[in-house]
Design a protein around this nucleic acid. Sequence first.
DNA 1: TTATTAATTGACCACCCTGGTCAACTTATA
DNA 2: TATAAGTTGACCAGGGTGGTCAATTAATAA
Lengths: 215, 215
Amino acid sequence: MYQTFLNLEVEKQHKIINAALKEFSTNNYDTASTNKIIKDAEISKGILYHYFGSKKNLYLYLYEYVTTIFIDAMNSRLDLEEPDIFKRYEQIMKIKLELIKQYHTFFDFLKKTYAETNVEVRSKLDQYNLTIQNSSYDSVFAGIDYDLFHKNIDSKKAIDTLRWVTDGISNRYEKQLKSNVDNSEAFNQLLEQCMEEADDYFHFLKQLLYNNLKG
Amino acid sequence: MYQTFLNLEVEKQHKIINAALKEFSTNNYDTASTNKIIKDAEISKGILYHYFGSKKNLYLYLYEYVTTIFIDAMNSRLDLEEPDIFKRYEQIMKIKLELIKQYHTFFDFLKKTYAETNVEVRSKLDQYNLTIQNSSYDSVFAGIDYDLFHKNIDSKKAIDTLRWVTDGISNRYEKQLKSNVDNSEAFNQLLEQCMEEADDYFHFLKQLLYNNLKG
DNA sequence: TTATTAATTGACCACCCTGGTCAACTTATA
DNA sequence: TATAAGTTGACCAGGGTGGTCAATTAATAA
């Protein structure tokens, strides 16, 4: 299945995948247009259906593809020996942002799939999610030592706060990063700037949550 | 202009406004369907165009309406004498969540307008934003005493953190709240629960940022 | 070279939905 | 009763839909 597509050179595969991710990120399943996808990917209508058979298959292929890429990136690049949750979040953040470099609308697409309501694809998404549930999100935080927080700190609140701050900083840079996906130098510079800012905020929070010191 | 519409009893106005907000919240301007709006609002096609003249006018009317409601709610209900940023955020949060009770997709619609790219409406939105710029967001934080933070605290980072935490808690409850808009009792109970949780988190942060104490 | 297979194109299909109109009808007002 | 205002929904031309398929091109094998 999809063998003809997989025989393509990877650059062409990426071009098609990115075009489809983009269309499905800005529209829900029903209103997303295969015509726009083929136009953006610069391929013919016929060949898209030769590769994927139907719009539904394309959509589900994309979901499995993106999910796999995400899990693999985390599995291969996270250092689970690192017990410091700040350093772990730094790693997660960097991996995520670098995925945007390759797949501009990676997380927009994922976000859209969560909210997708079309019954046909919804059931398939749910079905697929069951098969990956165990191996994904939780394991990203395996091996974290929550006792590093100061004894008087409510660690649940601390973790939530850290997550929200991380998301806040990511969102602050995401728009800029996306508009520079085609300029590798500018992108990397922005990414570095983002990581530095995260480092500043993490230092700020660390002082409060680990050491019981300020400033 | 829109006089016929404004002569309607407010319940009917709200029904039409909510139907339109919903459609424009889940679709961009071009793909949003006036047919779905009239179906949801239970009015005829002709009368919608009699009220608003065109889809574009309806959209822009909605934007001005929502913006005005938001600014008015803040102006009338915020206590600008309150210098504590935590208490101010508590007020803001409550006002926002109660707006959802009346207008389910209030902030989803606003969020969509930020990202709207249709050139015709985009320029009109930008044009209108210029006229309200001064009177809106900044004034929500007028009179806050930033010296309440402990002297070693970077107040910019503290403010950002507080905003992200507030948003995080709101988002945690938003989905539930929306699914209970028709059950006033359940909605109010959820809202209270949300405010209590916010209070917990604010207490947690306050200990860290104001007193230099933990727990 | 030729024969066979695989990859690729894009015009074409029947169908559905679009924003907007307007003659006809109902309701309110004078 | 006469006039005006409010409201309906069938209808329009235009455009976009997912998907097909005969025809063409490119790659492979003999």
